[in-house]
Write a protein that binds this DNA or RNA. Structure first.
Length: 822
RNA sequence: GGGGGCGUAGCCCAAUUGGCAGAGGCAAGGCGCUUAAACCGCCUCCAGUGAGGGUUCGAGUCCCUCCGCCCCUACCA
């Protein structure tokens, strides 16, 4: 494509200048109104892919736009540089993850630079920077001191492929590893946890205060999974002073309890199991405990439809409502990690219990009257209580209260809130992560590494393999140390932290990486926090966003971030993903379209314009055969604008007339449209408005009558400003050509539309008869209802059309429309 | 099984949130420029909004049912 300017020359010139002049560096004491724009901390996987490009295009537009609005805009960048891919790649290549990672970082940095995205590089953060690790470890220790970090044995998700423990969030629904795809196993291991459950209630409640996409908020609420119910005792039939404690959200269905179930991990299971049943029970437990999540949970389709495996324990408990003895089963559909690990089973009102009861031939007693014609198994809806003694006739809500009261009196019942959310497992048996700064001493037990000895940095000469042990555990030089308390030989913790810990506070470090001796100064960070606009992918809707929210709350509470707002991200925007032939474009799928080739042809500006124009930013983008042509179309638009701004083939006339006024009106209406488009994430319509304006101006200026000089100048200059956040290079270049003595277009103020010019004087009013358009006429915008009706009825075409008909009603909606009903 | 989203021209998308279905782009066709082609400029063509029903003077927009595609979630008692 022949272009009227040298794309690469122009673009690299401005990229260098923005960097050299520190155009987008901001100081913490900047007096302007503040704006914190942030794109999600990227994992450095190499050169940018289209998903990155899309992300940073939106982010950069915002940075430049908000700057032109007169704000001090914080625009930082950095790298989520710890993590498995680098470690695995290093193992494969026999090199060190740092070499690998540093190279990938360099590539990504160069990609975003070539995109023309601008940052305050003085604030760069990367996770494997010892200077960042130091504070990551300081935070860990602060959590430990506050009781928010603890060590416990737990059945954990073990990925044999990655040779490490995974968080629940990293296990797919089908029981495979989110990263490697291997089938995840369950193992009991000592692990480090963060007590995120302490914050469950606050994390849930504060969701209401966030300007986030509704679906992300819903996902977080579901993940936290709060449920209210009653915990109470089911006394053992053979030994009534002991009891099985259960949790239920439906105490009102207590009369329908026909059996009870304990999880395979339940501590009382052995005691409950009679000799006759022991063999069967053991068999089930063995299978359930060692089986992978996949085998245990997801089989064919879904939840309630699963095969319900279980075995009778041989024991009975007493239903406190009916005093009847009901059998106790062990079954893997009851989870040891939720509630009390045991349930009362009500097959009539719970689908899972119903399924189990059907398989095992257990009785079903309805306690809620299902609606007439109900044909399903379990009915969990609203209805009057039946077969329920003192609860009979009550609705569900009332019966719940009564039943809870009854259980409080007769079965040690207490109302209880449970959460689906579990504590965050943060330890990893891997090398390429931030070491957990703890020491094991035979005499003093667990001892934190003194803060003046931080950071604990892993040595380079480590053997990384897939044995399953932390690579650091076998490095004697690292492992052996002395106890900070007693000075005797001791061993270092060999596990590293989940990389989600790194991305949970990096945005605070960005806000103030300058104050020595601190992760960040809370007063300085408070100048920027919370992030005004966070931009990233929907894939982080749960994990990263929940952890970061937890971190900030905890940091405030442990005294590291006093005075900061408790929520990190005020507004969140989740961009759509790029798909190629129907599937998500990603490195792991190997279906990337690299942006590099576009830098040579359409330039970064052309590519940016494409991403802005292709559709609503929140929608997915289909990368199709036609995409190339659309991208070229975007470059064509830039070229057309460039030629027009050279006044190529333009005619001029002397004094300002109506044609010039019309252009000024179009210009100012476009200012309004583009501004509105920017404010409501409608970049595609903002670009369309610019294209439309270019068509209008071009037609006018190249007509025989031509343009009035100052009007054309105003139009071009304003268009340059409007386009500056979208296509920053060429607008900077053109602005410099026109106004060499003035500051850059990027330092100009964002244009403000003149309301007088935006305002329409007259508008076409449509006259309908029975909803069909019959006539149109130009009316003043301020036309009253009465006038509109009169004008419509007086209209000749309408009068003819109405001949012989009776007007039943006239709906006048001036100035747009009048509808005459006959 | 649960939750959410989407469906407008051959294609990507607009539509002041209930008021003339079309802003923009791509493709296609035509004309001009050119020795010719590309580039460039100008012009033209194209749907009644997935299907059906309802509310309304009026529905792409609100409400039901169905179809298709996509995403999230999954035995949490």
């Amino acid at each position: 494509m022949a272009r009227p300017f040298e794309v690469t020359t122009v673009e690299s010139k401005w990229q260098a200048r923005w960097l050299d002049e520190g155009t987008y560096e901001v100081d913490n004491d900047d007096p302007r109104e503040r704006f914190y724009a942030l794109c999600m901390y990227p994992y450095p996987s190499g050169t940018a892919h289209q998903g990155h490009i899309r992300n940073y295009t939106f982010g950069d537009l915002l940075v430049r736009y908000q700057t032109m609005l007169g704000k001090a805009v914080l625009s930082p960048f950095g790298f989520d540089s710890f993590g498995l891919p680098a470690e695995n790649a290093a193992i494969k290549a026999g090199s060190h993850p740092r070499l690998f990672t540093d190279a990938r970082m360099k590539e990504l940095k160069s990609s975003v630079r070539r995109l023309g995205a601008v940052y305050d590089w003085r604030r760069e953060v990367y996770s494997h920077d010892p200077n960042y690790m130091k504070w990551a470890q300081t935070i860990f220790l602060a959590f430990w001191r506050a009781g928010l970090a603890y060590r416990a044995e737990a059945p954990v998700n073990w990925c044999p492929g990655c040779a490490t423990v995974l968080a629940n969030e990293q296990v797919n629904a089908d029981g495979t590893c989110d990263r490697s795809g291997d089938l995840v196993e369950r193992r009991n291991l000592e692990q480090w946890f963060f007590k995120i459950t302490d914050y469950a209630e606050e994390l849930l409640n504060d969701i209401d205060t966030l300007e986030w996409p509704e679906r992300v908020k819903t996902m977080q609420r579901n993940w936290i999974g709060r449920s209210e119910g009653v915990e109470f005792d089911l006394p053992f039939a053979h030994q009534p002073d002991k009891a099985l404690r259960v949790f239920t959200t439906r105490p009102d269905t207590g009369f329908g309890v026909t059996y009870a179930v304990v999880a395979p991990e339940h501590p009382l299971l052995a005691e409950l199991t009679t000799n006759d049943e022991r063999r069967q029970v053991n068999q089930l437990v063995e299978r359930a405990v060692s089986a992978s999540e996949l085998e245990r949970t997801a089989s064919s389709d879904a939840g309630a439809g699963l095969e319900k495996r279980g075995a009778f324990t041989g024991s009975f408990v007493i239903n406190p409502f009916t005093k009847a003895q009901v059998p106790v089963y062990v079954a893997d559909y009851v989870l040891g990690t939720y509630g009390t690990g045991a349930i009362m089973a009500v097959p009539a009102e719970d689908e899972r219990d119903f399924a189990f009861a059907s398989v095992h031939g257990l009785p079903v007693v309805r306690t809620t009257e299902p609606p007439e014609g109900f044909e399903g198994g379990a009915y969990s809806g609203e209805g009057a209580h039946i077969n329920s003694g003192f609860l009979d006739g009550l609705d569900v809500a009332t019966a719940k209260l009564k039943a809870a009261e009854y259980l409080a009196e007769h079965a040690n019942g207490v109302t209880k809130v449970n959460y689906r959310l579990r504590d965050w497992l943060v330890s990893r048996q891997r090398f390429w992560g931030c070491p957990i700064p703890m020491v094991y001493c035979d005499d003093d037990g667990l001892v934190p590494v003194p803060e003046d000895q931080l950071p604990v940095v892993a040595p380079d000469d480590v053997t990384m393999d897939k044995s399953g042990q932390s690579p650091l555990a076998t490095h004697e030089g690292f492992r052996n140390t002395t106890c900070p308390v007693c000075g005797k030989p001791a061993r270092r913790e060999a596990d590293t932290m989940d990389t989600f810990t790194d991305s949970s506070w990096y945005f605070l470090r960005y806000a103030d990486p300058f104050t020595p001796g601190k992760a960040f100064d809370p007063v300085e960070a408070a100048k920027w926090m919370p992030v005004d606009q966070y931009i990233g992918g929907i894939e982080h809707a749960i994990l990263h966003l929940l952890y970061a929210r937890f971190y900030l709350k905890a940091l405030v509470d442990v005294g590291i971030a006093p005075g900061l707002p408790r929520e990190p991200f005020k507004r969140l925007f989740t961009q759509g993903m790029i798909r190629l032939a129907g599937s998500k474009m990603s490195k792991s799928k190997g279906n990337l379209i690299a942006p590099e080739k576009y830098y040579e042809t359409v330039g970064a500006d052309g590519l940016r314009l494409f991403h802005l124009f292709v559709g609503p930013p929140a929608d997915d983008v289909d990368w199709t055969a036609q995409t190339e042509e659309v991208i070229e179309g975007c470059a064509r638009f830039i070229d057309r604008f460039y030629r027009l701004a050279e006044y190529d083939e333009v005619n001029f006339h002397e004094s300002f007339d109506d044609s010039d006024l019309a252009v000024r009106q179009a210009l100012h209406r476009t200012i309004a449209r583009v501004t509105e488009g920017f404010e409501r994430w409608s970049y595609n319509t903002a670009v369309a408005a610019m294209m439309e304006l270019l068509n209008t101006v071009s037609k006018w200026a190249r007509s025989e009558h031509g343009a009035e000089r100052t009007t054309l100048d105003e139009a071009i200059d304003t268009m340059l400003k409007l386009l500056a956040p979208m296509a920053p290079h060429i607008t900077a270049e053109m602005w410099e050509q026109r106004h060499a003595a003035e500051p850059s277009v990027h330092l100009q103020s964002w244009p403000v539309a003149d309301p007088e010019l935006v305002k329409e004087e007259t508008i076409t009013m449509v006259i309908q008869i029975n909803g069909k358009v019959r006539a149109r006429l130009e009316v003043p915008v301020a036309t009253s209802e009465a006038d509109a009706e009169r004008l419509a009825l007086e209209n000749e075409i309408i009068q003819t059309a109405l001949e012989g008909a009776t007007v039943k009603r006239v709906v006048a909606r001036p100035p747009r429309l009048v509808n005459i009903i006959v």
